[in-house]
Amino acid sequence: MSDTTTPTPATAPALRTSRPLSESLLNDKWDRCLSSLLIKSGLGLSFGVIFSVLLFKRRAFPAWVGLGFGAGRAVEECDSSFKGAAAQSRDGLRVLRP
């Protein structure tokens, strides 16, 4: 990635700002997916912990359930993003349905 950036300073920022490089598209998606997985599973876990303390007498299972919920949601979002990305974007195109 860093190699493609040309030494001339004038051209590099113009390229960068316009849009990400195409070969790094998949990697970017992976990064975003992993971060969202971390955050959402963490959120789910924390909710699970709170529920277990408040309602379930400090049992362990609500924490696991929350973790599962968060992770599942993150995976689902990631999946949808992967699925939609390969095909060419249809922004600005009219879709004729049968």
Binding site: M1, D3, T4, E23, S24, L26, N27, C33, V75, C78, D79, F82, K83, A86, A87
Partner: peptide, 19 residues
């Protein structure tokens, strides 16, 4: 560099998910 990236996605089916 592009070739390495492409190779990673070489085996992807149509409309691939995370798995």
């Amino acid at each position: 560099r592009v070739a390495t990236e492409v190779r990673k996605a070489a085996l992807l089916p149509e409309n691939a998910g995370v798995a």
